[in-house]
Computed example of a mutant assay.
Amino acid sequence: MNINFEYDDVKASNRLEIMAAEKLEKLLDKYDFIVRSDVFFKKENTSSPESGMVCNIRLSAPGPRLFAQSSSDSFEAAIASSIEDLKRQLERRKAKMQSH
């Protein structure tokens, strides 16, 4: 699987890339039909201290692309939340693929 990282108003971080890649590899182990992933890190100005660090993850797989976005007080929490959203979407996609 090919993983692309993009940063918007954020300094590139090896630590974030490694963390995201490890979580995505776990998804790939379970769902081998994933072809590619794009991970976007972005800082937003918000009035709430519990948000502002945004992580978007887009997965390419058979059918429409899967997408999850999460905003939290840290990129680590945002990555974890986005991965959880994608797990649910992948489970539904796998169920649909098996029923055909």
Results as ranks from 00 to 15, higher is better:
Val54Phe: 07
Val10Pro: 00
Glu84Arg: 10
Gln69Thr: 12
Ala21Ile: 08
Gln98Phe: 09
Lys23Asn: 08
Ala95Lys: 03
Asp38Glu: 13
Asp73Pro: 00
Arg15Leu: 04
Asp38Tyr: 05
Ala78His: 08
Ser70Asp: 13
Ala77Val: 07
Ala78Met: 03
Ala61Asp: 05
Ser81Asn: 13
Asp85Met: 04
Asp38Ala: 11
Met53Ala: 12
Glu6Met: 10
Ser37Asp: 01
Lys26His: 06
Met53His: 15
Glu25Trp: 03
Leu59Phe: 05
Lys23Ser: 05
Gln98Tyr: 08
Lys11Cys: 11
Val10Ser: 04
Leu86Asn: 00
Asp32His: 12
Lys26Gly: 01
Lys42Gly: 04
Arg88Gln: 08
Asn4Ala: 10
Glu50Asn: 11
Met19Trp: 12
Gln89Tyr: 00
Glu22Phe: 04
Leu27Gln: 14
Lys30Cys: 04
Phe5Met: 11
Ala12Gly: 07
Leu28Ala: 12
Ala12Asn: 10
Asn4Asp: 14
Phe75Ala: 12
Ser74Glu: 04
Ser81Thr: 09
Val10Tyr: 06
Ser81Ala: 10
Ala77Asn: 12
Lys96Arg: 15
Phe41Ala: 07
Phe75Met: 13
Asp85Ser: 04
Val10His: 09
Val35Phe: 11
Ala78Asn: 13
Leu16Cys: 09
Ser82Arg: 10
Arg92Asp: 13
Asp29Cys: 06
Asn56Ile: 04
Lys26Trp: 00
Glu22Trp: 01
Ser82Gln: 13
Gly63Thr: 03
Val54Asn: 10
Leu66Phe: 06
Ser72Asn: 15
Lys26Leu: 09
Asp32Asn: 12
Ala12Ser: 13
Ala20Pro: 03
Glu50Met: 09
Leu27Thr: 03
Asn2Lys: 10
Thr46Val: 12
Pro62Lys: 08
Glu17Ala: 05
Val10Gly: 07
Asp73Ile: 02
Arg88Ile: 14
Ser81Ile: 01
Gln69Cys: 03
Arg15Pro: 00
Phe40Glu: 08
Ala95Cys: 01
Glu6Ala: 13
Thr46Ile: 12
Leu16Gln: 05
Val54Arg: 13
Lys87Val: 09
Ser13Phe: 02
Phe75Leu: 13
Arg65Cys: 00
Gln98Asn: 15
Arg65Glu: 02
Ala68Gly: 14
Lys23Asp: 01
Asp85Lys: 01
Cys55Gln: 07
Ala68Met: 03
Leu86Phe: 04
Ser37Tyr: 00
Leu86Asp: 02
Ser71Thr: 10
Phe40Asp: 10
Arg15His: 11
Ser60Pro: 04
Ser47Asn: 14
Ala78Ile: 02
Val54Pro: 02
Asp38Ile: 11
Phe5Lys: 04
Glu17Tyr: 08
Leu27Tyr: 07
Asp85Gln: 06
Phe67Tyr: 11
Val35Thr: 15
Ile57Leu: 03
Asn14Met: 10
Phe33Glu: 14
Ser13Thr: 05
Arg15Gln: 08
Asn56Cys: 09
Ile34Trp: 05
Lys26Ala: 06
Arg92Cys: 09
Ser60Cys: 06
Asp9Ala: 14
Arg92His: 11
Met53Ser: 12
Thr46Arg: 13
Met19Lys: 08
Lys87Pro: 10
Ile83Gln: 02
Ala21Met: 14
Lys94Val: 01
Lys87Arg: 14
Glu25Arg: 06
Arg65Val: 00
Met53Arg: 15
Arg15Val: 11
Ala80Thr: 03
Glu17Lys: 15
Val39Arg: 01
Ser47Phe: 11
Gly63Met: 02
Ser74Leu: 13
